[in-house]
Amino acid sequence: MKDSYLKKLTDIPMEDYLVGGHVACQGCSASLGLRLALKVLGKDTVVINGSGCMTLLPVYPTTPLRVPWIHLAIENTGAAGTALYYALRRKNIKANILGYAGDGATYDIGLQSLSGAAEKNIDMIYICYNNQSFGNTGHQRASSTPRASSTSTTPGGKVEVEKDMPAIMAAHRIPYVATACPSYPVDFLNKVKRAAEVKGMAYIDLLVPCPVGWGFDPSEGIDIGRLAVRTGIWKLYEIVDGRVNLTYIPKKRRGVSEYLRAQGRFSHLSEEDIGAIQEEVDEAWEGLEARGYEYEIMV
């Protein structure tokens, strides 16, 4: 690992480019994710936002940002990034282009535009802050919503399995794809650093537990994220050149019920349902173990 990479929490830069005073909810992990990402990307960064919770960070006439920020609409973060890449090049402005959009804006309505930018391999960092629902409108079902999760539009629990967005992005043969969670900030920020270093498009799927939508106390966001990883439900990995590499392997996986029972959105599940989810997770990890936690997903 290069020297410039972070090894411990206190290696994280002090400077904040996203400050307080904004109207994100108490305990919002999405604003935390942006705050952390900007720490390592630094002041020479332009943020493009797709409509969602984070769109309400700048509310006229005040902004919590110290870097340029533009929001156009929900479904065009990729297109705006493409244009901005060329425009900044023409203006001789050297800056990281950070797309920061929610999962609804990424997995669903913005997929076409993101795919266009990925196919062109635009040199930008795209972080999907994934709260597994249309969060800003009040936690409606999205294609990122995991199976069994209840939402305001799937009160009985979602039937379908969520989209494998990192695999879709990897299929564009972009140089860097990763998943992350702000509960593991060193892992997350090293991935952001790597994303900034690669030439071309980098995609990071950032799991951001949402107290309001998922139904837990605002003080528990970091714990919930940690449980998502330690139970093996949210896997932390990178995909480089079609090769998946797990960056965190829980030594002893915790039972999924610990994660599921902590959230209102899974409160309707029976012990049987939870058992079935546990079986699925176990099976997936046995497969991963058999492959040495590293495998090709593309030919």
Binding site: K43, V59, V67, I70, H71, I93
Partner: peptide, 12 residues
């Protein structure tokens, strides 16, 4: 959109 003059555009 220049980091030298950080502006926020398209906010609420």
């Amino acid at each position: 959109l220049d980091p030298k003059y950080p502006m926020s555009m398209g906010g609420a």
